[in-house]
C-alpha cells in the first residue's frame, strides 16, 4: 500500500496550476483534500506521473453570496461549509447534507471541489448540486466555462472536465422562501458512503400548495439521478403522504440500480422509494412550518 513514484508539484497560483495542467494534462492528478485520491494512490489504482497539489494555491477557498447564488470555492474544506452560518441560512439543503459526509476528520481535509471532481455517484455533494440546479465553473489556460450538473456529471467517477481543466468553484441558487429541504440516507455505518441518499426540496405558496420541488438521489446510477418528472406530480396541490409515496414509486420505476456487496439492486430500489417519500415528507413539513412562520412574522 505504497504509491509508485510520481513528481510532486506544488504551484502557488491558479495560473501556475493551470499551466501545469496544460502541459501534463492526462498524466497529472490534482490533489485537493486527498480523501479519495490518496487511498487510490496507495492501492496503485491510479499511477499519475505528476501530482499537482492545490493546497498552496491562493484564492480557491471561500464562501460568498452574489446574484442570488451561493458560490463556494473548490478548495473550501467540507467542514468550513458545514459550519458556515451563511450556508445554513442560504442553502439549508447543503448544510443538512454536509455532516453526512464521512466523519469530521475527513471533512476537515476533504474539499467541496475534490468531491465534485471525483464524481462518485454515492457521494452527497453531487446529488445536492444536481437537486439545486447548481453550476460548476471550470477554468483552463484556454478560458472558463460553466456547466450544469447534467452536463458535468458524465459517468461513474467521470466528469466533462477536460484534462487541462480545473473545477474552481460551484454555484447554487439561494433557497427561496417557504421552501423545506431534507437530505436522508441509509449507510451501513455512520460515516460510510450511503447505499442510497436522497436530497429533496419542496416549496409551497402561502396557501400551502406545492409550487416546486426537487429530488436527487445518490447510489442508484452512474451519476446523481434527478427525478424531475416524478416530483412534478406534486406541483399544484397540497402535498400528502400518499402523494409522496406515489413519487417514490415513480422514482423507482425508471431506475435500474447496480447491486454490489452491500446492497442488491432490489434493495437499492427499495431504499430509493422509501427515502424519496420520507425526504419529501420531511421537506414538505419544513416548508409548511416555514410558511407558518412567515405568516406569523407578518402579523
Amino acid at each position: 500500500m505504497k504509491p509508485p513514484r510520481f513528481d510532486y508539484l506544488i504551484p502557488r497560483s491558479l495560473d501556475e496550476a493551470l499551466g501545469v495542467l496544460a502541459q501534463h494534462g492526462e498524466d497529472a492528478k490534482v490533489l485537493a483534500g486527498g480523501q479519495s485520491l490518496v487511498p487510490l494512490l496507495n492501492f496503485r489504482l491510479v499511477r499519475p506521473a505528476h501530482l499537482l497539489d492545490l493546497n498552496d494555491v491562493a484564492g480557491l477557498a471561500g464562501i460568498r453570496v452574489d446574484d442570488g447564488h451561493l458560490t463556494i470555492g473548490a478548495m473550501t474544506r467540507q467542514r468550513a461549509v458545514e459550519t458556515s452560518a451563511l450556508v445554513r441560512e442560504r442553502c439549508p439543503l447543503l448544510a443538512e447534507a454536509m455532516p453526512q459526509i464521512g466523519h469530521v476528520q475527513i471533512r476537515n481535509r476533504g474539499t467541496i471541489g475534490g468531491s465534485l471532481a471525483h464524481a462518485d455517484p454515492a457521494a452527497e455533494l453531487p446529488a445536492v448540486v444536481a437537486a439545486l440546479d447548481g453550476e460548476l465553473v471550470l477554468r483552463s489556460a484556454r478560458g472558463e466555462r460553466v456547466l450544469t450538473p447534467d452536463r458535468y456529471f458524465v459517468a461513474y467517477l467521470t466528469t466533462a472536465a477536460e484534462p487541462d481543466e480545473l473545477l474552481v468553484e460551484v454555484r447554487v441558487p439561494v433557497t427561496p422562501p417557504r421552501t423545506g429541504v431534507a437530505f436522508l440516507e441509509v449507510s451501513r455505518r455512520h460515516g460510510d458512503f450511503a447505499l442510497v441518499g436522497v436530497a429533496a426540496t419542496v416549496t409551497v405558496d402561502e396557501a400551502g400548495v406545492c409550487t416546486a420541488g426537487a429530488l436527487a438521489l445518490t447510489g442508484v446510477g452512474p451519476t446523481p439521478v434527478v427525478a424531475r418528472d416524478a416530483v412534478r406530480t406534486l406541483v399544484g396541490a397540497r402535498p400528502t403522504p400518499a402523494a409522496f409515496e406515489e413519487v417514490g414509486r415513480r422514482v423507482v420505476a425508471g431506475l435500474r440500480p447496480d447491486g454490489d456487496l452491500h446492497a442488491s439492486s432490489e434493495y437499492r430500489a427499495q431504499l430509493a422509494r422509501v427515502l424519496s417519500a420520507r425526504a419529501l415528507a420531511r421537506a414538505a413539513e419544513r416548508a409548511a412550518a416555514g410558511a407558518e412562520r412567515a405568516k406569523s412574522d407578518r402579523r
Partner: peptide
C-alpha cells in the same frame, strides 16, 4: 456488519475497510 465475502471463483471481495465493515463507536 463484518463478513469476508468471496465470489464463486474464490476471489476475496472484501479487501479494504470500504468493504469489510468494522463497527465504530457510532
Amino acid at each position: 456488519l463484518e463478513e469476508l465475502v468471496y465470489d464463486e471463483q474464490g476471489q476475496l471481495l472484501t479487501t479494504t475497510f470500504m468493504e469489510y465493515l468494522v463497527p465504530t463507536v457510532m
